[in-house]
Structure formats: C-alpha cells, structure tokens
Amino acid sequence: MNEDEIKKLVFQLLKQIAPDTEPSTLKPDENIRDTLDIDSFDSLQFLVSLDEKLGIEIPEQDYGKITTLKNLVDYILGKIK
C-alpha cells in the first residue's frame, strides 16, 4: 500500500465518522480531530476501523504520534512495512 492509497483509506474512514466534513481538504499539518471536530469516542471508532482494514494495532501511548494527516500516514507506512 502506498502513501496515496493510505490517504484515500484514511479519508474514507474519516468520512464515515464525520459525514458532514470533507476530510480530503485536510492540510498535512492540521490537527485531524480539531479540524474535523471529532470527539474521543469517534476517534476510537476511527482507530478501530483502521485496525480492521489494515491490521495495525495502535497502542494508546502512540496516540500523540498520529494527530495530523502527515503524522498518521507516516505512522501507518512505518507499521505496514
């Protein structure tokens, strides 16, 4: 899976939990939760669905490493390699 494919999946999953937003307009360094107004519950749902799609388990102590789109995509790339 390359960077573009990961982004596409991330946008699709974000859209599911925040259907009124346009995740694809996220800037690389914007805080995802703040920008799309996602609370802790929906944030957990998003991570569960990422786990289901990609089989990557994100431990809680890594939550700080995936706050922006760029961070998240890099993190996933690192995990699936």
């Binding site: 957990l44 991570l47 569960v48 786990d51 388990e57 994100i58 809680e60 102590q61």
Partner: peptide, 10 residues
C-alpha cells in the same frame, strides 16, 4: 495497554 483496541475503555 493489555487490551485489543476494540475493548479499550474511554
């Protein structure tokens, strides 16, 4: 830390 993500508590 001991739980799969589906079982995590908020």
């Amino acid at each position: 830390s001991k739980r799969p993500i589906q079982k995590r508590l908020l």
